[in-house]
Amino acid sequence: MARGGINKALVIEARDTLLNRGENPSIDAIRVELGNTGSKSTIHRYLKEIEEESSARLDDEALLSEPIKALISKLTATLRQEAHSIVESNKEQNQHREQALKARITELEGIVASQEKTLNTKEEALQEKLVELGERKSLEGRLSSELAEAKQAITEQNAIVTEKQSHIDSLEEKHRHNRDAMEHYRQSVKEQREQDQRNHEQQLHQLQAEIRALNQTLSVKQNDITGLNKDNGRLVAEISAAQKTLAELQAESRKNHAQIDAQASENNVLKNEIKKNESHISELELLRKKHKALTEWKEKSLLAQAKLEAEVAVKNELVERLLKEKSKNFGGPVGKECGSPDCEYD
């Protein structure tokens, strides 16, 4: 539970607790120790006052000698050098990682752009194929309708041919009967000629007229048979043409089905490439997240470097102020007045 407010005593208590645990008494650590209470500026002001009082107590209780000052300067220089070395090393590693990530991102973006371009091209080709397929299906439907009509026409023509053939057979049968009747009549006439010569002579003109009429009827029937034969030949030719058209339509239909199967295979290949592009895009998104995290870590490192440099600057300032205070209080460097660095403990 957060406290209602902070004061200097609470900050000193939190600072001492962190030092006893071996932790760095930073502003954020003290604020957490205080229950996330108090502004950072207030904590910083109290810490500054505490450090000034600590420096003043050190100045009153234990005067620093030249070796100690040299040691402080050396430690300060070493701390600054190590801090700069760590920061430079981290910066160099970050630069290498950032360059590698940027190169990988550029490469993946190029791959994705290429894949997207290829995908767009194939999608356009697919759309064209789909349009062509639709046209082919429409054409196939029309051809099927025409084929059905042709089959219906063939059926009707076959029926007509059958009817004509039946009529031809009937005419031939009549012609055969007429021929048989005429032969029978001639035979009868021949047999009765001697017996009925007179009657025959009387009826000769009538019989000849009937024969002429029968011949005319026979000629008409033969003309009908010839016309029927011509119609039959024409119908046979039409049936052959229709059968040829039917074979062509069936071949075109098989070809269309083969193209449809090939288009389905190409669609499956396109789907696989789309899945592969999605995996590349996922990898790119992951690398972007890693790059973002690395950028944030870099910013935090720079912030930590700036904070470390600020702390080093503050400590240098405190050391210099301490030295100035000693020089001011003792009129010169400690050790020169008594001639020995150990005289300050006498």
Results as ranks from 00 to 15, higher is better:
residue 210 E to M: 03
residue 201 E to H: 09
residue 199 N to S: 14
residue 233 G to D: 10
residue 222 Q to P: 00
residue 233 G to Q: 14
residue 228 L to E: 00
residue 205 H to M: 15
residue 213 A to F: 00
residue 239 I to P: 00
residue 200 H to L: 15
residue 196 D to L: 01
residue 241 A to Y: 01
residue 212 R to H: 07
residue 200 H to W: 13
residue 219 S to D: 07
residue 198 R to F: 03
residue 203 Q to L: 12
residue 225 I to W: 00
residue 230 K to L: 11
residue 200 H to Q: 12
residue 242 A to V: 01
residue 193 R to I: 15
residue 227 G to A: 14
residue 229 N to W: 01
residue 197 Q to Y: 15
residue 202 Q to V: 12
residue 245 T to F: 02
residue 233 G to S: 15
residue 217 T to E: 06
residue 214 L to A: 07
residue 224 D to Q: 12
residue 224 D to C: 04
residue 231 D to K: 02
residue 225 I to D: 00
residue 221 K to H: 10
residue 244 K to W: 03
residue 193 R to T: 12
residue 239 I to L: 09
residue 244 K to N: 11
residue 214 L to S: 04
residue 192 Q to D: 14
residue 231 D to H: 05
residue 208 Q to M: 08
residue 243 Q to H: 05
residue 214 L to E: 03
residue 193 R to V: 14
residue 206 Q to P: 06
residue 236 V to K: 11
residue 238 E to I: 02
residue 212 R to P: 04
residue 221 K to M: 13
residue 225 I to R: 00
residue 203 Q to I: 11
residue 197 Q to S: 15
residue 228 L to F: 04
residue 202 Q to K: 15
residue 211 I to Y: 06
residue 219 S to F: 05
residue 238 E to P: 00
residue 205 H to C: 15
residue 234 R to H: 12
residue 214 L to G: 04
residue 218 L to T: 03
residue 239 I to R: 00
residue 224 D to I: 04
residue 234 R to Q: 10
residue 193 R to H: 13
residue 192 Q to N: 14
residue 241 A to R: 05
residue 238 E to R: 00
residue 234 R to P: 00
residue 213 A to C: 04
residue 216 Q to W: 00
residue 219 S to A: 11
residue 227 G to I: 10
residue 199 N to C: 08
residue 198 R to S: 12
residue 242 A to T: 02
residue 216 Q to D: 11
residue 218 L to S: 02
residue 206 Q to E: 06
residue 217 T to Q: 10
residue 227 G to L: 13
residue 210 E to L: 08
residue 201 E to Y: 13
residue 222 Q to H: 05
residue 226 T to L: 05
residue 219 S to C: 06
residue 197 Q to N: 11
residue 222 Q to L: 08
residue 210 E to P: 00
residue 217 T to F: 03
residue 203 Q to F: 09
residue 206 Q to T: 11
residue 241 A to H: 07
residue 224 D to A: 05
residue 217 T to H: 07
residue 235 L to I: 08
residue 229 N to E: 15
residue 224 D to P: 07
residue 234 R to F: 04
residue 220 V to Q: 14
residue 212 R to Y: 04
residue 221 K to R: 09
residue 225 I to Q: 01
residue 205 H to Q: 15
residue 227 G to S: 14
residue 203 Q to V: 12
residue 227 G to N: 15
residue 199 N to K: 14
residue 228 L to T: 02
residue 234 R to V: 06
residue 221 K to Y: 05
residue 196 D to H: 01
residue 198 R to V: 10
residue 213 A to N: 04
residue 215 N to V: 03
residue 207 L to M: 11
residue 223 N to G: 11
residue 238 E to V: 02
residue 201 E to N: 13
residue 208 Q to N: 12
residue 205 H to E: 15
residue 219 S to M: 05
residue 235 L to H: 06
residue 203 Q to E: 13
residue 223 N to L: 08
residue 200 H to I: 13
residue 232 N to H: 09
residue 239 I to W: 00
residue 236 V to A: 10
residue 192 Q to W: 06
residue 215 N to A: 03
residue 201 E to I: 14
residue 208 Q to L: 14
residue 220 V to L: 09
residue 198 R to W: 07
residue 215 N to F: 02
residue 201 E to S: 14
residue 230 K to I: 09
residue 228 L to N: 01
residue 233 G to F: 07
residue 228 L to H: 00
residue 229 N to C: 02
residue 210 E to G: 08
residue 208 Q to I: 08
residue 230 K to R: 09
residue 213 A to M: 04
residue 232 N to V: 03
residue 244 K to P: 02
residue 242 A to K: 01
residue 241 A to S: 07
residue 195 Q to S: 14
residue 198 R to I: 05
residue 240 S to R: 10
residue 221 K to Q: 14
